[in-house]
Design a protein around this nucleic acid. Structure first.
Lengths: 256, 256
DNA sequence: CGGTTGGTTGAGCTGTATCAAAAGATGTGG
DNA sequence: CCACATCTTTTGATACAGCTCAACCAACCG
């Protein structure tokens, strides 16, 4: 998912948690270096949107791409039946505005009030045509989202709610941690309903799992938007679920 | 994912997915034209693998990309807990071998015996450097997979097994249909277990849902690998779940 | 302040996983 | 071509996890 920054030498789109600010650490992990941002500055204008506001809608003509300066956004898509699913969350230094056939592929909405740099498409295209390095960075972004969506699939493929939630928390932690550090504190700017829509669970279940993990002394939640990992070992065990033996190991053989 | 290293397919160097998405319309999948295949022919060699054989493993150094001439393959990935998930199925004219940091991102295994064109990476890269049109096609492939993964997420975000399965069948149908045509017959070369691993269900549940849909006269399964859509309207209603009409587990009276 | 939104908690229901086993396919060597 | 061994699919019984419906609480806001 877009927010995920597992850190990659070449790909890593945005390694900027909303905690610290410097763009210097792990320069190669950033989608855009400070220098690259400078090159974009001339065509960018600052926009601010309020919590809950929609930046653009799925299917609308793509007119601009946005670089998040501050705040958190979410990518929402409507299912045929009208229910919604959240495809991912975006944090500062992420770029949103993925389009296909000139139309945005999903709706992007502000989870918290946010500030973004707006880069109109025509100008951006002109710029990228002359700056292949920048161009390459934007391509990397798309590839990163592919990988993120695949990881999302892996999480949703597991039925158990506690595993899904633990993985989600782990993901949020990685996004917020600079350089793969293991922070114990996690910010959750989004609502329980948002988490549920991301994980394919109801808000009630999300809430219950939070309560369960808290009772088990695995995490602590001073308030709904802050989590502390208390028992790292057990937390990790759930997220990775080494638990019960399911599939007999040797199965990846066969002819050939 | 922990320790996940993002990266980039070294192919596709020149395009800008953010700006001009795939020029594909509607259901058209990104394929190579006959002409493009001709240009690839000089560096391609034919390979055949047996059912169940592994083409390459996740994490292994990427040495080639494959264009499927015949047969069906699946993309499998291991979860931290050892269980497997299927990310997708590949059919003739699909291209497999997506790499990241020079390593394959998932294991690809033959669902049925298959024949492929093997294109060694070094040669392919040389070729793409000179042929920007081909290069573009390969980029489209990556974008296509991103979109497919997002659709997969949408399906997995719904709990109900019958909806998941109906959507899967619909997907298979679209893949097998030449031009967005609505075929009533669907081939399912993969096993119930494969379907389950793709949908996040157990094989038993997959089987039960097949049985249920069959009893309800919505589909017909002459054998486990062939499905016919009998009641298109109700089938579609389930796949899109416009309403809440669930198919009762058993006892379906009223034919039609 | 009451109204609203988001979060938590409870009771009951339903559907899926699980365990178990039989029936059907598939492939092999005799 | 058959018989056997293996794998796949199906079916059954049961337990349990998550959904639904609903009430309640806390924080926020006009």
């Amino acid at each position: 998912m877009p927010g995920h920054r597992g850190a990659s030498p070449r790909l890593a789109i945005a390694a900027r948690p909303f905690l610290s600010g410097p763009a210097t650490d792990g320069a190669r992990r950033d989608l855009l270096t400070a220098q690259e941002r400078e090159r974009l500055a001339p065509i960018a204008s600052l926009v601010r949107i309020e919590r809950g506001a929609i930046l653009f809608r799925q299917g609308a003509e793509a007119t601009a791409i946005y670089d998040i300066a501050g705040g958190v956004l979410k990518s929402v898509t409507l299912r045929p039946d009208g229910t919604r699913a959240i495809l991912g969350f975006f944090f500062p230094q992420d770029i949103v505005g993925l389009a296909e056939d000139g139309r945005y592929v999903s709706t992007v909405q502000a989870v918290s009030s946010a500030v973004l740099y707006r880069m109109p498409l025509p100008a951006l295209e002109r710029l990228l045509r002359r700056d292949s390095e920048l161009d390459h960075q934007f391509l990397m972004k798309a590839c990163h989202e592919l990988r993120a969506a695949q990881l999302h699939v892996l999480t949703l493929g597991i039925a158990r709610a506690d595993i899904r939630l633990a993985r989600f928390l782990d993901l949020m932690r990685q996004i917020q941690a600079p350089e793969g550090a293991r922070l114990a504190f996690i910010d959750l700017p989004m609502s329980r309903a948002d988490i549920g829509e991301y994980l394919g669970l109801t808000p009630e279940t999300v809430s219950r799992v939070f309560a369960r993990l808290q009772r088990a002394q695995i995490i602590a939640c001073p308030d709904p938007h802050h989590v502390r990992i208390v028992d790292e070992a057990r937390f990790h065990a759930i997220a990775q679920e080494e638990a019960r033996p399911r599939v007999p190991p040797s199965r990846l053989s066969a002819a050939g």
